[in-house]
Design a protein around this nucleic acid. Structure first.
Lengths: 221, 221
DNA sequence: TAGATTGTTAATCGATTAACAATC
DNA sequence: TAGATTGTTAATCGATTAACAATC
């Protein structure tokens, strides 16, 4: 077990996929699986799966494989799902509202504590039981109730400004949905961005006659 | 110039970022840039940038660097922005509506032709001038007006079903926003997924005490 | 026990970085 | 011309795959 070593970004990005497949297997009633079978299902090699898991410990049994439910729980633990994260949503436009109303934060261990906006028409209301406050009250709110993650769904013009405020009060993660690169001081918060446009442009490349791409089959299909 | 070779996924994923930075530089009025300066701005090495670009041609000039506007155009061309893609949106819930109303498809060369839903309350209406049809009319619509990309924002239970219909009528790309893996027959359509949950779970890992991660600084900041 | 499958070490492959001749 | 910077080839680094002893 090569624990303690730095875990590469490639491995971190595969963890949620493992979790997704393991959850699916569990729902189907499958109780055990080998690295070989999981690899076939996911389009990865058995070697890679065993290598990936070995970053975190020993979860299998020789001659048997892995118990689906317990491996799933281990992966959940590794990713920090059980850590009881709290979050706030900055910007209750279409996207912010879509996330609050439809995205199952709690399934991933996050509790949304509040949302913030500038529009007086929605400030004071609540969505799914989550109160919407004036963004001016952000600092005040965070002083009383520290949160781990800020979800940025504001217009891109104010994204960096909001990020600065979040960093100032010591948020540890920023989940950024705007199409700009958020800059934070070295070692302050971690920024994870969902860049819709990057994704669409990659797709555009891949469907353009010349760029059928080599890989990527490894992802889909 | 190593043209004609297969372009790796890593390179394809960086193209949109190049485009983003070049657009920003252009907006700032910067007319020329060297691979060194661009690398510093983006957190990449000059070598990598030159290596990446060399997959597609020669765009610079020794002793000078690159002309921002023309490199930007070249990258746009490479990604297929100028190709005049058309798209339809499947599912006009919160997220579908958020995309239609806020995401600048046209900026990336996509024209949204129609949206589809099952809800009789919205079927027949239009958003931003885009008509919402009954999903039953999907096949009929596509016969008369072929589109390149289907954007899937339906509930995940029906995602695969919709994907099958899209593939059946020969769509070349699927932009999937549901939290499931879409399966398509080998060599039919390209699937590009925006997995919100994968992103949030990666963030969860990174903010969890043990998993401050090694890399990723290479991405943010 | 025999067969299966793990965790890990070694080999391979690919991607990133460094170096440098060409040249604007 | 001298300095800067490209495109490309070679060197390094890291990630994936293969192999295999350990063992359930």
């Amino acid at each position: 077990m090569a624990r303690g070593n730095k875990v590469s970004s490639a491995v971190i990005r595969r963890l949620p996929r493992y979790y997704r497949y393991l959850s699916e297997l569990q729902n189907k009633g499958t109780t055990r699986i080998s690295s070989g079978a999981l690899g076939t299902a996911m389009g990865l090699t058995a070697s890679q799966i065993r290598q990936d898991l070995s970053c975190f410990g020993e979860f299998g049994q020789q001659g048997y494989g892995y118990t689906v439910s317990s491996l799933r729980e281990e992966v959940a633990e590794i990713m920090g799902i059980t850590r009881g994260h709290s979050a706030i949503v900055l910007g209750v436009g279409n996207l912010g509202r879509a996330l609050i109303e439809n995205f199952p934060f709690s399934e991933y261990g996050f509790q949304v504590r509040a949302a913030f906006d500038v529009d007086p028409k929605i400030v004071g209301s609540s969505l799914q039981g989550i109160p919407v406050y004036d963004v001016k009250k952000l600092g005040e709110f965070l002083q009383n109730e520290p949160v781990n993650v800020g979800v940025i769904t504001v217009p891109k013009q104010v994204a960096q400004k909001i990020a600065n405020e979040l960093v100032a009060v010591g948020v540890s993660g920023i989940w950024n949905f705007t199409n700009v690169e958020i800059a934070v001081p070295e070692g302050s918060a971690v920024v994870e961005s969902v860049h819709f446009s990057d994704s669409l442009l990659a797709l555009s490349y891949m469907i353009s006659p010349r760029g059928t791409g080599d890989d990527d089959d490894e992802m889909d299909e």
